[in-house]
Design a protein around this nucleic acid. Structure first.
Lengths: 212, 212
DNA sequence: CTGAAAGCTGACCATACGGTCAGGATGCAA
DNA sequence: TTGCATCCTGACCGTATGGTCAGCTTTCAG
C-alpha cells in the first residue's frame, strides 16, 4: 500500500502528516476531553513520535484550536441549506439532513465542538460572537419571514434553531447512550433514516409547516 | 454567620464538608472536564486544604463518581412525571418542565452528565445498561399505549424520547452558546418560560397531541 | 476528666505530562 | 553532486498533579 508511494514529495508529506495528526487529535480530544488528552496518545494514534507533533503544531492548545476550527467549518457549511430554500419544509428538512449527516460522519468532531462550548468556548468565543451570531441572526430573519408569509406557525425562531441544533447534535454527543439503549449496536442505515424522518416529521408538523 | 454555629457536631461537619466538596467538584468537573479538573482547584473552591479532600474522598475517581451518581439521581426523579400522567399532553408537558428545571437549576451537573456520556460513560456504563434501559423501555411502552389509544400520532417512541432529552439538555450543556447569542446575558425568567412553551408546543403539536 | 476516635493539614513524593533541543535523515533546486 | 531547507526523533527538563503520611487538634462517650 503505502510502500508503492515511496518517493513522497515534501508537500504531500506535510499534508498527510497534518491530516493524520488532526484526525488522531480529534478522536483523542473527543474521547478524553482537552484536559484528559495526551500528546503522547495522539502521537501513538497518528503513528508518529511525540516530538514530531510539536514540529507541526507548536503546542497542545494550537493543535486543539485547529481541530475545533475544522469542525466549525463543517458545521457552518450545513448552513447553506437554509439559504437555498424557498420555505420551511425545504429549508428545515435539508438542514436536519445535513446536520444529522455531520453527527453520523463526524461524531468525534461534534463531541469536540460540544465540549468546547460546554467549557465556555475558550477558543471559539470570538467566532461565536461574530460569525455564529451573524449566521444565527440571518436565519432568524428568514424564519421570521416564513412566519409572516404564513408558511409556518409563529414559533420563536431562536428556540426553534436551538431545537434543531440540540436534536441533531444529540445523535453524535450522546451516541454512546443511544448505542447502549440500542443493544450495544450502533444505529443501522435504516435506523438513521428513521431518526431523520422522525425529527423532520415532528418538527415540521410541530411548527405547522406541511411536510411535502 | 458560621461563627454563631461554633459547636459543630461530628455528623454536621461531615455532612457539610462532603456537601461543599461535592458542590465544588461538580462545578470544576463541569468547567474543566474530568481530565482538566484539579483536586487543588476543587479544594480551593470548597475552602478546604487539598489533603482534606482525600480524607473524605480517597481518589479523584471516587469523587467524580459521587458527583455523577448525584446527578443521575436527580435526572431519574424527573421520570416520575411520566408515570403519573394520563396522556401525552400531561406527561410530556410535565417531563419537559421537569427537565428544563434541571437544566436551569443544575447546569453544572447536567454538563458533568453530558461529559460522562460523551466520553463513553466509563463510570455509568452499568447504570445505563440496567436502570436507564429499564426506565427507557418502560416509557417506550407507555408512549406505545398512548399511540394505540389514539392519543397521539404513531411516532417512534425512542426517537421521541431522544428528542425530549436533547432539547431540554441543550439549555444546560450549550448554555454558554445560548447566553452569547442572547447578548451575553443569561436567560431571564420570561425567556425560560418562553423556551419551555416553545418546546412543549412544537413537540406536542408535532406528535399530534392537542395541547390543553 | 480522660482517652480514644474522628477530623484536619503542611510537607513531602513519584509520576506523567507538555515542551525543548541537538543533531541526524531526506528531499530538492541549482 | 552539492548545499540547503525541510523533516524527523531520542533523550532530556521543569512543572504540576494525584496521592501519602506523620502528627496535630477537636469532639465526645464513659
Amino acid at each position: 500500500m503505502s510502500e508503492s508511494t515511496r518517493p513522497m514529495r515534501r508537500q504531500d508529506i506535510r499534508r498527510e502528516n497534518e491530516k493524520a495528526i488532526l484526525l488522531a487529535a480529534e478522536k483523542v480530544f473527543a474521547e478524553a476531553g482537552f484536559g484528559g488528552a495526551t500528546m503522547q496518545l495522539i502521537a501513538d494514534l497518528a503513528g508518529l513520535p511525540k516530538a514530531n507533533l510539536h514540529y507541526y503544531f507548536a503546542t497542545k492548545e494550537e493543535l486543539y484550536r485547529s481541530v475545533v476550527q475544522n469542525i466549525f467549518e463543517i458545521w457552518l457549511q450545513a448552513a447553506n441549506c437554509f439559504d437555498a430554500a424557498r420555505g420551511p419544509v425545504d429549508g428545515i428538512s435539508a438542514y436536519i439532513d445535513a446536520k444529522m449527516e455531520i453527527s453520523r460522519r463526524h461524531p468525534d468532531g461534534s463531541k469536540v465542538w460540544a465540549s468546547e462550548v460546554m467549557h465556555g468556548a475558550p477558543v471559539l468565543q470570538d467566532y461565536m460572537e461574530s460569525t455564529l451570531r451573524e449566521w444565527t441572526d440571518g436565519r432568524v430573519e428568514i424564519i421570521r419571514r416564513w412566519i409572516e408569509e404564513g408558511k409556518m406557525d409563529p414559533v420563536d425562531p431562536r428556540h426553534l434553531l436551538y431545537m434543531l441544533w440540540a436534536t441533531t447534535q444529540h445523535y453524535a454527543d450522546f451516541g454512546h447512550q443511544i448505542e447502549t439503549l440500542n443493544g450495544g449496536k450502533s444505529l443501522s442505515d435504516r435506523q438513521w433514516r428513521e431518526a431523520k424522518e422522525n425529527i423532520k416529521r415532528v418538527i415540521l408538523t410541530g411548527i405547522g409547516a406541511q411536510p411535502a
